[in-house]
Write a protein that binds this DNA or RNA. Sequence first.
DNA 1: TTAGTATATGTAGGA
DNA 2: CATATACTAA
Length: 686
Amino acid sequence: MHIAVQHPPSIPLQILAGPGSGKTKVLTARIANLISEHNIPPYAICAVTFTNKAASEMRERLTKLIGKAQTSQIKMGTFHALCATFLRRYPRLVGVEGNFTVCDADESKKIVKKLLEKYKQFLVERDISLKEATVLSMISKAKAKGRSAIDLQEEHLNRDNRSSITAEIDRVVAEIYGEYERILRRNNSLDFDDLLVFGVKLFSGHRKVGLWCQHVLVDEFQDTNTVQYELMKCIAAANKCVTIVGDPDQSIYGWRSAEIENLERMQKDFPTTQQIFLEQNYRSTASILAASMAIVSQDNTRVPKTLRTSCPTGPTPVLQSFPYDNNEAAFIAAEIKRLVAVTGGMLGWGDFVILLRFNALSRSIESALQKEGIPNRVLAGHKFFDRLEVKDILAYLQFVDNPHFAPAFSRAINVPGRSIGEKASETLESGYIPDLLSAAQRLQISPFEVVQRIYDGKTPDIKPPVKRKLASFLPPLRELRKLAQSGMQPPDLIRRFLDLIDYKSHLMKTQPDWESRWDNVQELINYASEVEITASSQQRDYDDVSDGEDTPLRLFLQASMLSTDTETQGDDGKEKVTIATCHAAKGLEWPVVMIPAVEKGTFPSSRAEDIHEERRLLYVACTRAQGLLYLSYSTARMVSGEVKRKEPSDFLLPLHGQVRCGLQPNAFWRHVHFTLRTCSAIRHRI
DNA sequence: TTAGTATATGTAGGA
DNA sequence: CATATACTAA
């Protein structure tokens, strides 16, 4: 471990670290070492993680090691957040405005959906079904490979395809891709993939942007895609000092265009690269590791790797089958209760996690836990920011910051209801007002400008008269814009917004459960004040001239769009059983892990393209466990309102002999008690 | 043209 | 079981 920490900074390093081998610790120790032993200033270090959670954990640990002053200078964050920060600083260099809005997946979907309508008839005639989700993911994949709409279109022309269905789809997608891009640019907006694509443009096209950088460290390298890899390369261009940490066995984001080949690519691009293997596991018992290895070893395309553990053998992992998903859920709830009781309070609710292949499986589990009175929380992606009331507020604020961002406009214009429907708002949005505006002007005018002109009487009203209705929209917006530009803090801005449009009565009128929604509004204000604090604690560390000035509002909006931290809500300090997807569990650990629904069609998912990736996902899930691991499946399950028969997953086959099936004998419980005492996470507490 | 209600449909994974 | 679409009344 110390070899990896002290490895010379100028020799590119690949740390291949199995689960539980303490890679975060190595990474943070290495950063501390770079600063103290090699005199690399903290602002010259760039540490990239995959999730915000990993970034904040790293920040926490580093603060303990080297103090807050130095830690706050390190450029730390996700690829997306890092790009966003630098794009805000030098927007003009890549042809965007500093107040660009990050377009989230929902809004992208709506744009694509609208574009797809034009092709509907064409597709129906040819009996082709093309969903917006498919189009969106094809566009996303193209972007992740750094390929533009024009690239796709040219490629299509160069192929000698007659009119096969896939060729038609490719053509339509390439066209929609192009239009989608034009719409985003017109809206002064970047989607998630754009952040990376434009980040590469910025760093590769303008050396001065990355001159500060002396060392780049990338966590979870196995999950980087082509564009992210390019990004790493061009940020590191000045000094070629790179450290990456990764584990091919834990690559679970191929569907998001992650490319495991980046490991080899790096060895070619940085010829002096050296590898260090961390194979000592400090997390799981030997029997959990054995079962996990049995699962992942089934993949014969895998590079063999071993894992050792210093932990005791521990209780054998449990594999159970149930007739129906209800029984499975009830068992899980009962077993959690039993474990808490039998260990005499050594285990608390917070020590349990239930890992699912996808979120929809949580329903029966949640209700079973509720029935038993077990407090629980669902660790799920955006959720909070998906709430209607949160989206309403964000839409207003996005539009305040960026008057070209049409998606925010079309949401805000009719909240509260102003009887401005689809037709009217589309007219306003596009700036296409038939009689008055010349064709040239059309595209340059923002929805805000259109609304303003109508309200001020500079343009005749459009067909269903909207001028009067705008009285409750435009004046508040004008005031908010003025306040935002003068640098008002987001919490105050939100409060002012609530006052100006009387959002509370709107909620009361339209939502039966307005009280809990109003709580969410308050929670958003809390979140805003937290962002304010972290933003102000990040000082500007180099005095390069930039062309962007960020308002507090802008920083808040960006943080909201890029955050998936569910910790912002409900951290009332109470211990709760966690329910999460296997993907979301990456990098985390719990004393007891339960994985239900390990069935064909779920594990691997029937939609999965890469069965090996699905197996690795189960491996990742299993290796989250410190002391106890439960796998289970049901022979019948409610799927989309229908009862379906289910069979155990093939991934379970190699577990013969590694797991205990059926009920636990008393010896098992004594064993549990004994082992958990030695489990590091629990030992600390006793 | 819009708002509101009735009916049909279909379900990953995340920044 | 929640969301999208279809339909009707204003």
